[in-house]
Simulated assay, not measured.
Amino acid sequence: MKPIPIFAAAASLILLGAAPEPAPAIPPSEGVYRLPYADATRVSVFDDAATHRPLGAVDLVGEPRGADRRHRIVAAADGVVMAIEESFSEQQSGRAAADCRNNYLWLSHANGEWTLYSHMAAGSSSKAGLKVGSRVRAGQHLGDEAAVGCAMLSHLHFEIAVPHATTPIDKGGFLTDNALRQRIRVPRFCGVADKTVRKDAFYTAAPCR
């Protein structure tokens, strides 16, 4: 399958007469994944792979929204827990990503891709019985949606990547060797038209068949 180019909008540059720099071409994921919310959860897309900054990730929101809602995040496919950070509880919207203290969980999958689940509630992965090395099945509870770290609202930041073989992530949970987004893959989801989620659209989480 050919890579799918994703182009960033650059209206301000066009108005100034400067040609915008083309966005990196980010290929689609090899695997097809379920939406990473508990079955029957209504999910909206705050940012898709083309509108998210940086490119390639997606921001998903469990519906209905509200402080009293605690939507369950689940594994998008069978995998192994490679890293967990769940000690933070502060929302830090507006800070640079490198300055945020964010909760995250990385899963590795048999096809060589990893999936990232970010901004989950403090301690919720331990409450789900997980630790590094745990094997999980698609649809298994990983933690709870929240707004920990650099987050404007309670949501799930979801990425798919093919990480560096020896140093996949740094101490902050960010991919290494990824300056040009070369490690990122555009997520493909089962049960979704064209397997691609779109900004402001709504979907219902369900197992892949």
Rank of each mutant, 00 (worst) to 15 (best):
P3H: 11
I4L: 15
P5F: 13
I6S: 11
F7C: 02
A10H: 12
I14T: 09
G17F: 15
A19E: 13
P20R: 13
P20C: 11
P22T: 10
A25G: 02
A25E: 14
A25V: 15
E30P: 00
V32S: 09
P36M: 10
S44W: 11
D47E: 14
D48T: 09
A49D: 04
A49C: 10
H52Y: 12
V58E: 04
L60Y: 13
V61T: 07
E63I: 07
P64T: 08
R69N: 07
D78V: 08
D78M: 12
G79W: 09
V80M: 10
V80R: 15
V81C: 10
A83T: 04
Q92K: 09
S93G: 05
S108K: 13
G112Q: 07
G112R: 11
S118Q: 12
S118C: 04
H119Y: 09
H119A: 05
A128I: 03
K131F: 03
V136M: 09
R137P: 00
G139K: 13
H141I: 01
E145I: 01
M152C: 00
H155R: 11
L156Y: 05
I169E: 01
I169S: 01
D177H: 14
L180Y: 02
L180R: 10
F189G: 00
C190A: 06
C208T: 02
R209V: 01
R209L: 08
